[in-house]
């Protein structure tokens, strides 16, 4: 069969066979191994990138945690300080109160003791006066009136000087 332009089916098939052969050769010897290497390298760098991103995210998380802890620590310190201040103030107030109470009790005791001593002095003075009165009365009864009177006066003066 003579086709125009010298077209020959047998030669077309030979060309197609040749291209198919070339496809098989280039696919197995060149395309597949080179592409496999490219994919392998891509996977390697992707893995490296993923790991780096993972580490970065971990580091960011850690930084966030530390910042939170730091801010919490500041807050805690302020709280504890306030608490300690409060406690100190309460202790101081209690001590002052106690001291005041003690002072009051000491003053009360002192007042009571002074009162007691005063009463005892008054009582002693009264009893001495009574004794002197009775002694004077006795002497008046048992001696002259003038003498007795003079003696009474002397005694009274003496006792006043003593006091």
């Amino acid at each position: 069969m003579n086709l125009p332009l010298n077209i020959d089916f047998q030669q077309i098939l030979l060309h197609i066979f040749n291209t198919f052969l070339l496809f098989v050769i280039l696919y197995f010897l060149l395309y597949k191994p080179v592409k496999a290497f490219i994919d392998k390298r891509e996977a390697f760098y992707k893995e490296m990138d993923d790991k780096a991103n993972e580490k970065l995210s971990d580091a960011e998380k850690l930084l966030k945690e530390y910042n939170e802890k730091l801010s919490n620590a500041d807050k805690e310190i302020a709280e504890r300080k306030a608490e300690a201040d409060k406690l100190t103030e309460a202790e101081n107030s209690a001590k002052i109160e106690k001291a005041e109470e003690q002072a009051e009790s000491i003053v009360a005791k002192a007042v009571a003791m002074a009162e007691k001593e005063r009463e005892s002095i008054i009582y002693q003075a009264n009893s001495e006066i009574a004794n002197m009165v009775s002694a004077a009365a006795e002497k008046i009864v048992f001696s002259d009136t003038s003498e007795a009177f003079d003696k009474f006066l002397d005694n009274a003066e003496g006792s006043a000087d003593n006091e």
Partner: peptide, 20 residues
């Protein structure tokens, strides 16, 4: 065949040796 067919197989042979 036309010389083109021989050329085609020649090119395949060259590429085969290169690829190998």
């Amino acid at each position: 065949v036309n010389p083109g067919v021989v050329s085609a197989f020649g090119v395949t042979a060259i590429l085969f040796v290169f690829a190998l």
